[in-house]
Design a protein around this nucleic acid. Sequence first.
DNA 1: TTCTTAAATTAGCCTTGACTAACATTTACC
DNA 2: GGTAAATGTTAGTCAAGGCTAATTTAAGAA
Lengths: 133, 133
Amino acid sequence: MPLAPLKLSQSLEDYLEMVYMLRKENGIARVKDISTALAVKMPSVAKAVLELKKLGLVTQEPYAGVELSKDGEKLAHQILNRHLLLKLFLMKLGVSEATANKDACSMEHILSAETLSKIGIFVNEFRKKGSSK
Amino acid sequence: MPLAPLKLSQSLEDYLEMVYMLRKENGIARVKDISTALAVKMPSVAKAVLELKKLGLVTQEPYAGVELSKDGEKLAHQILNRHLLLKLFLMKLGVSEATANKDACSMEHILSAETLSKIGIFVNEFRKKGSSK
DNA sequence: TTCTTAAATTAGCCTTGACTAACATTTACC
DNA sequence: GGTAAATGTTAGTCAAGGCTAATTTAAGAA
């Protein structure tokens, strides 16, 4: 159970999440694409990938794409789910998609489990009581 | 109009807000009390106060309490309002007071104006439609 | 008044996470 | 296959924001 005590920094969470998303979209997560997507330079990505490797969350052959380990996959999935929940939540409140996406990105790293859980409940209630969509 | 373009870091916002709160509660904001309240050491407070002085948000005589400038007062007030709005919002969702307080503290530094505005609307609607309290 | 203690400050260090510049490798095109 | 361009890596710098240790000032007790 190496996942329970693992607490990533905000920025590492962002990198891990982006690896996951790029692999989902493109089948591969290249340093260049990560750097573009997160608006940082390539050396910053390289450094972050090193960290994630040390933590056993990704693997990477030099000069090749970044792969997710079993643990990395699981964790990235959790993070992405949090992101999607928060984005949906904000949009229910009437926030525009672009802003919802941006703010979800910040919120996903800082909210406590309790708050996330209550937000989940709210989103579900909202769905049931049937808004327009 | 020196307030419009002024964008504090998260940590400076925390310090400024705490000065405001302590002065409200105790009449004086001492370095020691700020340090205790924010769970940092006194030298960190001293450094932050220096920054806030440079920005013209606080004044301070050596070895005395921290005072707020006109601008500092206004800004601190805004930050605290954001905090209170978010705390109330989370509690409406069913989050416990302690957690609401903690998460409001993190959220208050990162949310966009649009999201804050929508949250404000939600809280008001909620009040009208009359929940239990 | 003097001495002890608490509070505040200063100096200097450390980590995180970005950056640029320089170098290495791979890819792609001729 | 050889070379230009794109991609990846390494080395070293910087700023923010913490910290400890050492010093200075203020305050309170003997």
